[in-house]
């Protein structure tokens, strides 16, 4: 078993944990955390395959993609947080209303 295989298998598990969390958890913040965990799984698989394709240095294209991806994911999570906080202030809901 190689190093990259450990992390690529972990990435699959993380993605499934995230997707399960999106369905199962109710609170807005937990749903946002779940999507970030899903994103972490995707990024981990990218970087693990970059390490497999390494010659003198690891494949830089997935690294660059992941760096941009992290920043974009954080920007969208910030927007989601702003929406969640406004919804809580306006209505007092902490989860989507059809869950009640």
């Amino acid at each position: 078993m190689e190093t990259y295989q450990i992390y690529s298998l972990t990435s699959a598990v993380l993605f499934v944990i995230g997707i399960g969390g999106v369905f199962i958890t109710r609170h807005f913040i937990k749903k946002i955390i779940a999507t970030m965990i899903m994103g972490g799984g995707v990024f981990l698989s990218f970087v693990s395959f970059a390490e497999r394709d390494a010659l003198t240095f690891a494949d830089p294209v997935p690294h660059a993609l992941v760096i941009t991806g992290i920043v974009v994911a954080v920007a969208s999570a910030a927007f989601a947080l702003a929406l969640a906080r406004r919804i809580y202030q306006q209505t007092g809901d902490i989860s989507f209303s059809n869950d009640k």
Binding site: T3, Y4, Y7, I29, I33, M36, G40, F43, V47, S48, A50, E51, A54, F57, A58, H63, V66, I67, I70, V71, A73, V74, A77, A78, L81
Partner: peptide, 24 residues
């Protein structure tokens, strides 16, 4: 860092853990 992606590690620690953690 274990996967030799130090650039990504700095970005992750600074943005995804640090900045997003502060927002949470």
């Amino acid at each position: 860092i274990r996967l030799a992606a130090v650039d990504v590690a700095i970005t992750e620690a600074a943005i995804a853990a640090g900045f997003l953690g502060v927002l949470f």
